[in-house]
C-alpha cells in the first residue's frame, strides 16, 4: 500500500479556514441575478394576464375583477419567462428563495386602481388555499387556448436582450 496520498490536502484542511457555510448561524449574501422568487411591482401592473398565459407551470393567476395578482410559490420553477413577456416590465426576480413551510400557501398581491395619488397598503402574504387554487386551475385551462393569440400579440414585446431589429422578420 502506498503512503498517505491525500496527505497534503488533509493537512491543509486542518489549518485553513473551513469551506463549510455554517448555515443557519452564518448566511451568504446571494449574488445579484440569483433566481429566487418572482415579485410584482403593484404600481405598474395593469393586470393584462400575459404572464398568466406565458407561465410554463400555471403558477400565476390574475383576477381582473378582484384586482389581485397571485403566484403559487409551490408551483413556480423560477424560469423567468413571465419577466420577458410582461409589457410593463413590472415583474422581477428577487434573489431570496421562497421559504419552507408546513402548508402550501399562495402569495397574493393586491393591485390598486391606477392612477391614484394615495395608495392602499398592500399585504404580501395571505393564506387562501382552495379559492385561489381553483382560479388558477381554470386559468391554466384557458392558457392552452389563448396561447396562440398571445404569441402573435407578442410581436410588439420588448425582449430584454438586445435583439436584432425587424430586418430579421
Amino acid at each position: 500500500m502506498g503512503f498517505f496520498k491525500l496527505g497534503s490536502m488533509t493537512m491543509g484542511s486542518l489549518f485553513k479556514e473551513p469551506s463549510t457555510l455554517r448555515y443557519p448561524f452564518e448566511t451568504k449574501e446571494p449574488p445579484a441575478g440569483l433566481k429566487g422568487r418572482i415579485v410584482n411591482d403593484k404600481d405598474s401592473c395593469i393586470l393584462c394576464g400575459a404572464c398568466m398565459r406565458a407561465c410554463t407551470t400555471g403558477a400565476i393567476a390574475v383576477d381582473r375583477k378582484g384586482r389581485t395578482w397571485s403566484i403559487n410559490p409551490y408551483r413556480c420553477v423560477q424560469c423567468g419567462y413571465c419577466i420577458t413577456v410582461c409589457p410593463k416590465k413590472c415583474l422581477s426576480m428577487n434573489p431570496h428563495y421562497s421559504e419552507a413551510a408546513r402548508e402550501k400557501k399562495i402569495r397574493i398581491v393586491n393591485v390598486p386602481e391606477h392612477p391614484k395619488p394615495a395608495r392602499a397598503k398592500a399585504d404580501a402574504a395571505k393564506g387562501v388555499d382552495a379559492g385561489a387554487k381553483a382560479g388558477e386551475e381554470a386559468a391554466a385551462a384557458k392558457a392552452g387556448q389563448k396561447a396562440t393569440a398571445v404569441k402573435d400579440a407578442e410581436g410588439a414585446e420588448t425582449n430584454g436582450a438586445a435583439g436584432k431589429d425587424a430586418a430579421e422578420n
Partner: peptide
C-alpha cells in the same frame, strides 16, 4: 457582439 436574435413566426 449581440447575445441573441429575435425569433418570430
Amino acid at each position: 457582439g449581440d447575445i441573441a436574435v429575435k425569433v418570430k413566426g
